[in-house]
Design a protein around this nucleic acid. Structure first.
Lengths: 318, 318
DNA sequence: TTAACGATTGCACAATTGTGCATTTACAGC
DNA sequence: GCTGTAAATGCACAATTGTGCAATCGTTAA
C-alpha cells in the first residue's frame, strides 16, 4: 500500500503535467496513462486539492490599489493589500482570494534569510497555505501561536503550520497544549512546562506574525467546532464579544473582553503581538464587525482583506 | 489610449479573478463585467499570455527523480533536474516543461539576498520567464551574457533579461552590442567601449549563469532568424558545428569550433563561464546532440531538461 | 466622401469538461 | 465462504469551453 500510494501520487503528477503543460485533453491523458477519462478528471482535481497544482494571479488593478491605500490611511496601518472580488458571493471564495494575496506577500517577505514566523490558524490561513508556491527557505521557522484542537481538519493550527513549513522547506514548531484549558490556573500551568516554554519562546521571538480574525455568532468556526462548549459560548455572548484572534476575545471597541476564556487559552500574549509586526488576514464582509474591533485593539500593522470587506469597512463612518 | 490600456488591463485581471478564484463560468464573468462570453474567453487567454495568471506544478515523481540522478551521475554534474514528459510531442511543450522546472529552481536559488545572475536567451529561457512567479528580490541583478538582436521577439536577450527583472523586481543590465559583429576586430572594439565594459564586468561577476543550448541545422533559432547570414551558415556547416551557447559554437566533441564566428560574437568568454556556476537548459530530444556537445565542453554544473531528452541522453552509450 | 484594410466582435457549431447516479469492486467482520 | 458497507468506477446527460468564419467597426489613404 506504500507502493500503491506512491504510484497514485506519481500518476497524479504525471496527469497534471500532461493536462496543464502538454495541453492534452483529459481523454488523451487517460489514453496515454491507461485510465478512464473520469479517473483523470478526479486525479486532476485531487492534484489541485493536494497543492501539486497551484495557480497564482496578479492582483494589482486600479480599484484594489486605490482601496488598499484608503484602508491603510483610514486605519493607520503600515500597509494594506486588497484582493479583487472573486465574484462568487460566498465566504469561501473570499478566503481563497485573500489567501492568494497573502501567499504572494509572504513569499516576498520570507524569501531571504533566517526568520521566525508566527502563525495562527483558520480557514483563511489554510487558504494561504494552499496558495503558497515557489517559496523555499530552509532557514524559515514557522511557529504556531496557539494551542491545538482535538478534532482538527485542514484548518487547525498544527496543520496550517505544518503545511506552510512543508511547502517552504522550513521547520515547524507547535505549541503542545490544548487550545482551551479548563481553568486559568490550568492554562498557566501548561505554559510553565519546559517543552511548552521552548515553543513559546520561539513564538515570542517571531519578528512577523500572521493571524486571522474570528467573528462571534453562529457562523464562526469556533462556534461550529467543538472547542468551546455551550456555557462558554453563553458567556461570550453575554459579554458582547464580537471578535477573536489567537485565543484572545475582543469587544467591539477593541478592548479585551472580561471573560475568563481570555485567561484559559494558552497562547502568546497581546504584549508579544504588539512587539512583532502583525499581519491580519480578514476575508468576507461577515468579518466587518470583528475586523474593526481587532484593528481598534491597535496591534495590527498590516491588513490583507478582500475587496468586498474593504468596501464595507470604508463605507461606514463609525 | 493610455487610459484604455489601463482599463483593459484591469478588466483582464478582474476577469481572471472571477474565473479562476471565484469559480464563475466565463458566461457569468461576462454578465458581471458587461462583456460577451467570447470577449471573456479571449481576455482569459490574454491574461495567461501576459503572465498575469501563472500555474505551477510539482514535478517530483519517482520516474523523473530517478532519471535526474542517472543523468547527473553519467555526465558528472553537480545537479540535474528532469521535467515530466508533457505528452504533446512538440518542442514547444518540452520548453514549457523545462521552463517551469527552471523557474521553480530559480525562485529557490535567487530568493535571498543580493546576487548577480547572468542569462542567455532563447525560447526555453523565455518559457522560464513566463513560468516565473512569486520570486521577489530587489537585490537581484539580471545581466545579459550576450549581445542583442535587431529583429527580436519575446525570446531575444533583451526581452528575456527584462522580463525576469520585471517579475522579480530586480535590476536588468544589457550588453549594448549586436549579437554578431562583422569582423573579430569589430567585436573586440565594441567590447572595449566603456559602457560595454561596465555591463561586461557585471556579467563576469555573475555567480550564477543560466543559458540554453542551440543546435545546428534547419530548425535552429539562429538559422531561422536573420542573425547569421548564408555565408556564415555555410561556414558553420562546413566546420561540423553541432551546438552553440552564449555566442560560442561547438563541435560534437565539446571543443570550440574553428570558425571566425567564435571571435565575432561580443559576449563573455568561456573562461568566465568556467568560473561561475552554470545551469544549462535543454528542451526536446532534438537537442540531444547539441546538449551532449556542450556538456563535453565541461563548464556546465547543472542541467535542467525534459524527460524525453533525458531518456535519449541515457540510452546511447556513446 | 469613399474605398480598403485590419482589428474586433459575435455566432453557430464542435469539443471538452463536469455531475448525479447506478454499478462494480474491495475488504472487514461474522 | 458470506454479507454488509464504503470506496472506486463508469456512464448518460448537462454545462461549459473552444474554434472557424462571417459580420461589423474604426481608421487610414486616396
Amino acid at each position: 500500500m506504500r507502493a500503491s500510494q506512491a504510484m497514485t501520487n506519481d500518476t497524479r503528477i504525471r496527469a497534471a503535467w500532461l493536462y496543464h503543460v502538454g495541453g492534452l485533453s483529459q481523454d488523451e491523458v487517460g489514453q496515454r496513462l491507461g485510465l478512464s477519462r473520469f479517473k483523470v478528471l478526479r486525479l486532476l482535481s485531487d492534484a489541485r486539492a493536494a497543492g501539486e497544482v497551484v495557480i497564482s494571479l496578479d492582483h494589482r488593478n486600479t480599484a484594489t490599489l486605490a482601496l488598499a491605500e484608503a484602508v491603510r490611511d483610514k486605519f493607520n496601518l503600515n500597509d494594506a493589500l486588497v484582493a479583487p472580488d472573486p465574484g462568487a458571493g460566498n465566504a469561501h471564495a473570499a478566503r481563497c482570494a485573500v489567501g492568494m494575496v497573502a501567499a504572494h506577500w509572504l513569499s516576498v517577505l520570507a524569501a531571504s534569510g533566517p526568520m521566525t514566523l508566527g502563525v495562527g490558524w483558520g480557514r483563511t490561513l489554510s487558504a494561504m497555505a494552499n496558495a503558497l508556491t515557489g517559496l523555499h527557505n530552509p532557514e524559515l521557522r514557522i511557529v504556531s501561536l496557539m494551542g491545538a484542537m482535538v478534532r482538527t481538519g485542514l484548518e487547525g493550527p498544527i496543520d496550517v503550520c505544518a503545511r506552510i513549513a512543508a511547502e517552504v522547506g522550513g521547520q515547524a514548531l507547535f505549541l503542545p497544549v490544548p487550545f482551551l484549558a479548563d481553568t486559568p490556573e490550568d492554562a498557566a500551568l501548561m505554559l510553565r512546562q519546559r517543552l511548552v516554554r521552548e515553543a513559546l519562546e520561539a513564538a515570542r521571538s517571531a519578528s512577523h506574525m500572521i493571524v486571522s480574525v474570528g467573528e462571534g455568532g453562529p457562523t464562526a468556526l469556533l462556534t461550529k467546532s467543538d472547542v468551546v462548549d455551550a456555557a462558554d459560548l453563553a458567556a461570550l455572548d453575554a459579554a458582547n464579544v464580537v471578535a477573536d484572534t489567537t485565543g484572545k476575545f475582543f469587544l467591539a471597541d477593541g478592548t479585551l473582553a472580561p471573560v475568563d476564556l481570555n485567561d484559559r487559552t494558552p497562547a502568546i500574549g497581546l504584549e508579544d503581538m504588539v512587539r512583532a509586526e502583525v499581519t491580519l488576514l480578514a476575508a468576507d464582509v461577515s468579518k466587518a464587525l470583528a475586523t474593526r474591533a481587532v484593528l481598534r485593539a491597535g496591534f495590527v500593522d498590516r491588513l490583507i482583506l478582500d475587496e468586498g470587506l474593504a468596501i464595507t469597512l470604508m463605507e461606514d463612518r463609525a
